[in-house]
Design a protein around this nucleic acid. Structure first.
Length: 496
RNA sequence: GGUCCCAUCGUCUAGCGGUCAGGACGCCGGCCUCUCACGCCGGUAACGCGGGUUCGAACCCCGCUGGGAUCACCA
């Protein structure tokens, strides 16, 4: 019988969901989807000092926003603390672990000395050699102790076949007797995490490459506990342009998933970008629907080399990785309009220019307008900024547009109101009608149509460039166009 | 420092002994046009270095260099 796949995403709730965590979640989710397996969400909250309710909420919100679904959980590691204790006792009783009475201070100084001599900083195994009597004596004195794993003291190595990195070997001699339970009785991550994975019957551990050098120690625990060892797939890490691991501490909001939500990214576009960081298909395909991505996904496609999240805080044009922006722009202009409408609504509401009618009688107009302007937008926030003139009469006139399209042609001060008069008289305010009126007037005035057209564009939208002018006019509507053109002379006053 | 991992355009990457080293983003140019974008066409740009193995290496081996991870009574 084939064993069903069970994977887990096990974040520790010490802050928001960041790029690295999201990537791990995405790969686990995709693998579960692909194989018809299960994804478990398990919150590793045993570090009470740093774990917060708020951050648990943030992580779940981030996953929800990305559209990542899980089949079980969230479970909380603290719920299973008894199991961790039981495992520790089992390890001690079976002789796989031993009590270590070395004090923190002793160990610190030994470590410092080793480091100073540029020697390996391994635990020397002093307490492993304690006799029964010595142990009894120390216990009688009430000395606190930690529990250490007894790493086989022999030739050989612990090795495993990583799905991404291939065969990984560690000699027993290079592995120190690591602590699994603190002197206050608290189990450590290496133990808890392994015990949880055993209980949850995890078949594949998919995690960041920083877990790679923990794996051999965890395998020792699996073996000592007599549990089957899962498959491991370690994913390459995400670095910043200076090749430092991205971190909340160093990069702040820029690596937070919610930052991208707030800055105009479509969740699927962002996920699509993230999955491309360290994963590829043989064809280097880039754009996937959800179904296509699940179909195309495989752990073998995960790269071994770390990748760079190309953020440049000081780049005026791209506040984040240009490729992320471009993928977002791609979805923005190709997704069915009715699917991006909710995102536009969110932005307009945020900007205080939302009209509930856009969801009712004006919905066709709303969708048409999105269709008209979306091809030059990169972010959903653009609808409320660069697209503001379509939704509100209170919009800004761009400085460059004012200079180039208005002030440069002083006669527009007369012409634009004239155009207002003529456009007002049109019975059917359609693109061909407005075009005829404008071109006629250009001819009568003996100016290039572009002068009038661009003047109108700026007076009506405040911008230097945009969609075809006749589409703009019909979209903004006769009433508003006429008003804006009539008020155009004010633009000159502002700029003497 | 010990251990482990990695190395193709600026960035994301394809490549798995014979390719003009492919695609994407960015950048540059052209077409389209009332402007900008979209779209289309074209251009720029890479196998870290040195040794092998081979008729032939981006691909295999060794060394070097460079980068990363980890070495807690954090998770």
């Amino acid at each position: 019988m084939k064993k069903d796949v069970i994977v887990r995403f096990a974040p520790s709730p010490t802050g928001y969901l960041h790029i690295g965590g999201a990537r791990t979640a995405i790969f686990n989710w995709l693998f579960a989807q692909k194989t018809g397996g299960k994804l478990i969400l398990r919150i590793e909250d045993t570090d009470a000092q740093r774990s917060t309710e708020e951050s648990i909420k943030g992580i779940i919100e981030g996953l929800n926003w990305l559209g990542i679904t899980w089949d079980e959980g969230p479970y909380f590691q603290t719920q299973f603390i008894n199991e961790h204790h039981a495992a520790a006792k089992k390890l001690l009783d079976s002789g796989h672990a031993y009590k270590c009475f070395c004090s923190k201070e002793e160990l610190e100084s030994k470590r410092a000395a080793a480091l100073k001599q540029k020697k390996d900083v391994k635990y020397d195994g002093a307490c492993r050699r304690l006799t029964k009597d010595e142990i009894a004596e120390k216990e009688a004195r009430g000395l606190p102790y930690t529990l250490r794993m007894k790493v086989p003291n022999k030739e050989g190595s612990v090795s495993f076949e990583d799905i991404v990195y291939g065969k990984i070997d560690h000699k027993y001699q290079d592995i120190e007797d690591f602590v699994i339970v603190r002197s206050n009785g608290q189990p450590l991550y290496l133990l808890s995490n392994t015990v949880d994975d055993i209980r949850d019957r995890i078949t594949h551990v998919i995690r960041g490459q920083d877990g790679l050098s923990n794996t051999h120690r965890q395998i020792l625990i699996y073996q000592a506990l007599g549990a089957p060892v899962p498959q491991f797939a370690h994913m390459s890490l995400t670095l910043d342009p200076k090749k430092a691991k991205i971190s909340k501490r160093k990069h702040g909001e820029l690596v937070a998933v919610h930052f991208y939500k707030e800055h105009g990214f479509l969740p699927w576009a962002f996920l699509n970008f993230l999955v491309l960081l360290g994963w590829a298909t043989p064809e280097s395909r880039e754009i996937f629907s959800k179904e296509e991505l699940i179909e195309a996904f495989s752990l073998e496609g995960i790269g071994r080399a770390n990748s760079i999240f190309n953020v440049n805080k000081d780049d005026p044009k791209y506040f984040t990785d240009p490729k992320a922006v471009s993928i977002n722009a791609h979805y923005l202009r190709t997704m069915p309009v009715d699917l991006i409408a909710p995102f536009v609504r969110t932005e307009l509401k945020k900007a205080g220019i939302w009209d509930p009618e856009y969801d009712a009688g004006k919905r066709p107009w709303f969708l048409d307008t999105i269709e008209l302007i979306r091809s030059r937008f990169h972010l959903t926030t653009d609808f409320a900024t660069r697209g503001r003139a379509y939704f509100s009469n209170d919009f800004a006139i761009e400085d460059r547009a004012l200079k180039k399209n208005i002030v440069k042609h002083p006669q527009l001060e007369q012409w634009l109101p004239m155009l207002a008069d003529r456009l007002e008289k049109i019975a059917e305010f359609t693109a061909p009608e407005t075009e005829a009126v404008i071109r006629e007037m250009a001819q009568a005035l003996d100016v290039k149509p572009g002068v009038l057209i661009n003047g109108i564009r700026t007076a009506v939208t405040g911008q230097l460039a945009g969609p075809g002018i006749f589409d703009i006019l019909t979209t903004i509507g006769q009433r508003r166009v006429v008003d804006r053109l009539r008020n155009a002379p004010a633009l000159f006053k502002k700029h003497w």
